[in-house]
Simulated scan of single mutants.
Amino acid sequence: MCGRFANHLSDMRRWVSLLKDWPADVPTGYNVSPTQVVPVLSSQGVSAMRWGLVPAWSKAASLKYVTFNARLETVADKRAFRDAWKQKRRCAVPIRGYYEWKTAPGGKQPYFVCDAQERGPLVMAGLWEEREGGLSFTVLTEPANGRMVALHHRMPVMLTPDTAHDWLAGEGALEPAEQEACRVDMKWYPVGREVGNAGNQGEHLIIPLPEPDQAK
């Protein structure tokens, strides 16, 4: 799953055709959490969207259940997401990387997941919705595959520069990736536990630490 990410982007050369307007005067950060408004890319360009999709039929701006992630395997059938899916309201969420936690001695240890070759941003597939003039989005997830299985049983659905164009244009379909094959080559490493506080910001949050069993 994905419940926290950093979208203060670095080198974007591989994505320049899509991200030329990034971030369109929308704030970015190193510790983005659900309900925050962040820049998101759709076929209409970069827009400010709230993380946590609010369906058009909802009477409240915030729902009692979680909508910041949507399972790719069931998104077409879930009431909160199926209209956005059917209408192909697709979006792409560029990030520097995302955080995941594992149980470790002394408490949960956060890890930062990023491009294995450090060639620039990762881009997550998502869906967006509009309600009373406000835009919101969800991040699609799929079963973890490749090396990511050792970190968590689920992961965001990642796009490449080629697949992102088709996804935003409403062309083609995404299917859960094969267990052995990652859509995008990623790596992960431990970071400081201060990222657990959503109020903390700064590049220091993504600085690698020694593996927990190697730390002295």
Rank of each mutant, 00 (worst) to 15 (best):
H8L: 10
K20Y: 12
G29P: 07
G29R: 02
V32N: 10
V37L: 06
V40F: 13
L41Q: 03
S42T: 12
G45I: 07
R50S: 09
G52K: 13
L53T: 06
P55D: 13
K59S: 09
K59T: 10
S62N: 09
Y65I: 04
T67L: 10
E73N: 02
T74I: 08
A76G: 05
R79F: 13
A84K: 00
Y99C: 03
Y99S: 02
W101I: 11
T103W: 06
A104H: 06
K108E: 11
V113S: 03
E118S: 08
A125F: 10
G126M: 13
G126T: 04
W128F: 15
E132L: 09
E132F: 04
G134C: 04
V139Q: 11
N145G: 09
G146C: 08
M148Y: 04
A150W: 00
M155S: 15
P156S: 09
M158P: 07
M158C: 15
A164W: 01
H165Q: 08
W167M: 07
L168N: 02
L168F: 02
L168P: 00
L168Q: 02
A169L: 01
G170A: 09
P176M: 14
E178D: 14
R183F: 01
R183H: 03
D185I: 10
W188S: 08
Y189F: 01
P190C: 00
A198M: 05
E203S: 07
D213K: 11
D213M: 13
Q214M: 14
Q214S: 14
